[in-house]
Design a protein around this nucleic acid. Structure first.
Lengths: 333, 333
DNA sequence: CTGAAAGCGCTTACAG
DNA sequence: CTGAAAGCGCTTACAG
């Protein structure tokens, strides 16, 4: 606010054009550059980004919109994306939608107002059908989730295959009454549900799944009720680590032993999944790779807008642990 | 980028001054306002924030700098702060320092460049001594941690008392060889260490503590080595949930039973701490209150710069669980 | 290599 | 209530 480029110019005894050049690309004599830099130090000058952006019609700000900042998957994503942005000399502006389509619309407008250079977006399911609204005038890379019908670059997991693998694993371990617990707000959860349904069908098993808000508390409530019913499952697949945690909590407080009374498997290799007893079988996602890939796609597209649409599909890794041990084999509690 | 206030003005058949007024504070006739709003809808106009900020010399952006975005404490903080900011009609720009003083310095400069209206900062210990540099020309509220010698508003926990309470609890449960595991990068960790030292002294016990980078992996390495030594502790207090998790992992893989071989207590009531077996005794922090309080202090000070410095001290709540059960009482594994 | 001038998209006195 | 003009702090052709 206080010290502007004019002050630096005065102190250095040059024009503000020269100061601008000395601080940026332009060619300046070494003597003058030295004097300018000295003046900058003396005055404590810091450029005003608003002015710079307005004038240059160019911005170094990238947007990131996630659906749930308290989901460790997204936290890890933000962490690596921020690192990559920093390495690329870009700044980040972050928005959290809390799975609320309306909040997401607001976030999109905020990004628009900031005239960001590009956006990494984990859309909530409400974005569906409003794909046209997603017509920001900047490149967009979808991450973890997609918007049906959109023509944006994307980095996603092979959700169907990953979930099918989890079901397959449970089947091999001898489980038959396998239930599914899926989020209700993302295409990712829907794909995982479909992968679950496909795998169940392939084995001629009856599918039974629930869709809930992807939070620990919603999962607790749902699973708690579910486990009281006569047709309750003896194994459960949860579509993210929050639902998985809720399922575990509900099972615990209902007195179900794992895996004897209820086997458990889910997504994301959070540290707690191997600290609980027994460890929980999970599908690990290459979060860091996904974040880096998304950033790479975004920077590429900012550089070269007319690239064809690219959709990167990453693969999960199944980590079998005690929670899915063969029926009747679990050690006594 | 594309459609500017001029386009709206042309479509509405008024001057851009009128458009600006219709969209903001100014008084405009109802007829004109209607026409302007229609033109906005028709053109899809969105204001250019850079231009608005530059001209009005006023910004609605608040900064948040945290030391570790992967620490759930900070994630929770960000979540509530973002919510509060949104309610106050403010935007947030977020920075993560990863406990690196140099990265923090960069973040501070970024904030400066953005001419933010105010900053919520969880400083890393490297900020010490550079308190003068922290002379941003905007209000600052420190959260969770302080900068020694600084005259900023702050919202912190009564760290000494909280840690002393944890030690006291362990003492009551019959533990005597109580070790401490503290972060090396925050005033908060230092205060917790001091609280630990004071409580140990008060009971005439020998203190033995380690200071490490506040990460799970650093804690694993440290505790792993520590537990191999003859003078190893039989109880451990960890200064945050990451260190606590690391301590638990190390104890587990070394084959130590909890609490029989090693009692464990730490900070932050993360959900996993009650899911592991036995549950871990923790000091719960009122994160949400802290975030809301910080935002309230910040908004107040932006409104009224010349308020006296305020330091809010919040209190933790000790949640005793199985990990600190009386010696010799733990149920067999 | 350097400076004077124009202008990015807005808001805000200032007249009317 | 409305419009013309100035100007926020920069960058960038344009001359020299």
């Amino acid at each position: 606010m206080r010290v502007s480029i004019n002050d630096v110019a005065r102190v250095a005894g040059v024009s503000k054009s020269t100061v601008s050049r000395a601080l940026g690309e332009g060619s300046v004599s070494d003597v003058v550059r030295e004097r300018v830099l000295a003046a900058v130090r003396a005055t404590g000058y810091r450029p005003n980004m608003a002015a710079r952006r307005l004038r240059s019609q160019h911005t170094d700000v990238l947007g990131v919109i996630v659906a749930d900042i308290r989901n460790p998957f997204f936290t890890a994503l933000i962490h690596v994306v921020e690192k990559a942005a920093h390495e690329a000399g870009m700044r980040l502006t972050l928005c959290n939608t809390d799975e609320d389509p309306q909040r997401e619309a607001e976030c999109l407008e905020l990004m628009q107002d900031e005239r960001i250079a590009g956006l990494i977006l984990a859309p909530t399911r409400g974005t569906v059908g409003r794909a046209s609204r997603l017509a920001l005038d900047c490149p967009v890379v979808l991450i973890d989730r997609t918007v049906p019908g959109s023509r944006h670059d994307a980095v996603v997991l092979d959700n169907q295959a990953a979930t099918a693998e989890l079901v397959e694993h449970l089947w091999v371990q001898g489980h038959r009454r396998i239930g599914g617990l899926f989020g209700s707000t993302s295409t990712t959860a829907a794909e995982r549900r479909d992968g679950y349904l496909g795998a169940m069908r392939a084995h001629g098993l009856d599918a039974a799944y629930r869709e809930v808000a992807p939070t620990v508390d919603a999962a607790i409530a749902e699973v708690d009720a579910w486990l009281r019913q006569p047709d309750r499952p003896d194994a459960l697949v949860a579509s993210n680590s929050l639902l998985l945690m809720g399922a575990l909590k509900a099972a615990r407080s209902a007195g179900f032993r794992i895996p004897q009374d209820l086997a458990l498997a889910g997504f994301d290799n959070e540290r707690w999944t191997e600290l609980v007893e027994p460890g929980i079988t999970v599908m690990e996602q290459p979060v860091e790779d996904m974040g880096r890939a998304a950033m790479a796609l975004l920077l590429e597209r900012i550089e070269t807008p007319h690239l064809p649409v690219r959709r990167l599909t990453m693969h999960g890794r199944c980590l079998p642990r005690g929670s899915t041990a063969p029926r009747g084999t679990g050690s006594a509690a």
